[in-house]
Nucleic acid binder design. Sequence first.
RNA 1: GCCGACUUAGCUCAGUGGUAGAGCAUUCGCUUCACACGCGAGAGGUCAGAAGUUCAAAUCUUCUAGUCGGCACCA
Length: 957
Amino acid sequence: MEKAYNPTEAESTHYKRWEERGYFAPEINENPNAEAFSIVIPPPNVTGSLHMGHALQHTLMDVLTRRKRMQGYRTLFLVGVDHAGISTQLMVTRQLKKDEHKTPQDIGRETFTERVWAWKEKYGGTITNQIRREGLSVDWSRERFTMEESLSIAVRNVFVRLYEEGWIYRGTRIVNWCPRDKTVLSDLEVKEETRKDGKLYYLKYPIKDSNKKITVATTRPETMLGDTAVAVNADDERYKDLIGKTIELPLTDREIPIIADEYVDAEFGTGAVKITPAHDPNDYEVGMRHNLEKLVVMNDDATMNANAGADFEGLDRYEAREKVVEKFEELGLLERIDDYEVVLPHCERCRTVVEPLLSEQWFVNMSEMRDMALDLMQKEHAPHFYPNVPHEKVYTTWLENLKDWTISRQLWWGHQIPAWYDKAGNVYVARTKEEAIKKAGTDKLAQDSDVLDTWFSSALWAFSTLGWTGEEVQSPKSKVQSQETEQLTTDNRQPTTDLETFYPTDVLVTGRDIIFLWVSRMVMTGLKFLGEKPFKDVIIHGTVLDKNGQRMSKTKNNGIDPLDVFDKYGVDATRMTLAGSSTGADFAWRDEKVESFRNFANKIWNATRFCLMNSEGAQVDYTFLNPKAEAREIIKTLKDELREFDEEDEEFLDKVIPEFAADNPKENLSIADRWIISRLNKTALNVNKALENYQFHEAVQLLYHFFWDDFCDWYIELVKDEITSEGVNTKRDTARSRIITILEQALRLLHPFMPFLTEELWHKLPEVSHALHNCAYKNAAATIMLTDYPQGDASMIDEKAESEMQAVIELISKVRNIRAEMNIKPSDKPAIYVAANQDLQKIFRENKAQILKLARADELKISESLDAPKASARGVLSGNVEIAIPLEGLIDFEKESERLENQLTKLNTEGERLTRQLANKNFIEKAPVEKVNELRNRVAEIQQQTAALRQNLTALK
RNA sequence: GCCGACUUAGCUCAGUGGUAGAGCAUUCGCUUCACACGCGAGAGGUCAGAAGUUCAAAUCUUCUAGUCGGCACCA
């Protein structure tokens, strides 16, 4: 083995093998009764490439999945990408322009769509290959794409059904229009940005048959060309008598009325508002109330159209703005211009300022589905968000204020809206053109040219990917499945079976930015079309920030590419870093952090290397870890005699186990063995508990601490002499087997987090097959990913062993501490005097060799009371243990007394505080008895230690 | 404007009523036969501030300040 772990090698070999052998597919689990676990990936954009957010999210999902798979669940981690309408279309359009100097219109819709598919085939695999690099155990045989046939059928069926039920409608509304992408956007795709360089223009409008003028304020003067009224508040004394009068709208030949509307706030601006119903959502409402004309003065690229007048037609909206202001100034109608902070809506994707525009679009009224989702939350508290605060509330509040969703997009790439129009403009919504023709009674039909919002198909992701098409009645497993339905299933991969098995999915892991865009919509469609929520739990992970706590962004160019991190530190170290961040909280990326996990990986590598250097005669011997398991093994082999023995019959086992007591390996275990077994089981229990609660960072901490501190720093060191001893003997082989077995268990515990390293090392272990009984998978011998995940056994926690070991550790640490403080050279091996009670004396005697080695001492003198030479450095330990290290000729009396004084001061401070607390009558009366006793015991110990230290001090002088 | 989160060691962060923790950085000492991506031993915090509840508060309540986020926005 190499001296250091080289991640590249392991990463390049194992994934391929896992994938080729089908380990990721749920079918690898042949147990027909296995419980299912499923998780769908939030589909990345087909145009996208991996960023830190993905890496975090993917790591969490893979940790959950790999653990469940090891636990014997029939596990599906479903992967796929979405077609990303706008981005993909833009990308291909750009390429077309660059390569052929053509526009999509030049080549036509059909050819363009073909080009996009070709682009997808060629470049769409970027992110999926990066997903392989991450080591995700996703089932590639079920990879999905939102534009593929089966998912498209689902989209059409959902559209048709919602239309037929009256939830989808076509209407003319003010929508968010992106003049660059030339498409409508939903509210959620619009990002508001505050601009400090805005202006507020005060324009004077002349009143007809009068020399009076009325001043309106606006941030967008160019829209005045589309004004169809000026509104004031009816209660505003200033304007009361102007209501009903007519304005001669400057720069146009139009006359518009002054109307009264409660929308107008008399306190703001001039108290008079220009009304442009076709270019402002609020004005639109006012226009509707007063039956005003809705005059559109802009084209779809935000240039002015003919309605704006000959002077302005063709001008860009900002040019028009300047010109309008100029003309007002010339006419003496510009009152003034104020600096004004404006909030402008921007297209989330291209950052163009969104134009509110009156246009005809398709909408979904979500009220029915919304009520279903709210009802579910109220009744079942589902889906359950992690962390629950604040996401549940944000989710609920958003649903409560839900507005209609604009679903049409003026693009060519996407699911074309299944609506057809006849010559008279009548609309026929149908699953296919044939069906539309039948409905219309004519084949002279044109399909709606728009496509659906990408999120419309993403909203179905949790079940469309499992084969749900909506063709016929299909239900998840919890619903009764009729014979007929199964026969009617058309998909060739038995989709209903996947749907039955894996819906609802167990958990969704995603970022908070798409709680509304995606999570809530999936809940709503899931409830509506499947009658059941699409997932039980939703984990909302945090944002990975840069090292200064800033959001990563292209404009700031402060992004960290996960692939660079993989190259530099390895995938496993990166995964540990990401999983080790607190669930749900944002965290600043630090290279130092991933470096420490790179070091951890290397530590694991080297610990294994050490074990393997001394592995001759060793075998993985799972049974010594757990006598109960061993009994179970033996009983199994005696199955015939025992006949109907139930393996889970714990009561019976408890009776039988003592029968095996004579051979109970526990009797042969050293304190160190019992201690590490206890620590292992405690760690396993806690890691599982942490993961059940999605406390990934807790699990990471536990594993890190167990492996490095417990296993490497203490266990390996304690048994080192034994396993490296020369010559073949049973004692040596037993010790070797034990350490390998503990290591093997630790690797399994680590596997969901560090799949590559653990797989690489696991294959190097001798006779791993010995450890594989009880595994759910017959292929388990070939990979650690199909071995049992150690669940931990509470009965194997040995508190006595832990406290005994603690005494040994404390003793060794104290000696080391004295050595360091007294500047004893590493080569000097003094004697150690220890005074302790009978029990501890026994422990120290049993571990004498290890204490001498780890404390670098020559001699260990254990007795009831300390009888060390005067010239000794001394210390007190818990359990009333005292130690002394003779330093004849070496000791610096002044330094030693200073050291002892320091210890005394510390003890005094603590003692005083505790005594004060114990003197408090209220504390004695109200605090729990255990707490009071705990303090009393501690005070007693402090008193003893103080007395001992005082004596030591006196002896020095 | 409304809602929420956060503020703990130099840095990044754990820690939901009972003596403050980790990693990195830092100090001292180590070519100890797995690992210098290492080993051993230290130093370092009035837990943002104030008030309250409690025998007991980093932890619960209220207020203040700062940071960040979500939602809604008046032309």
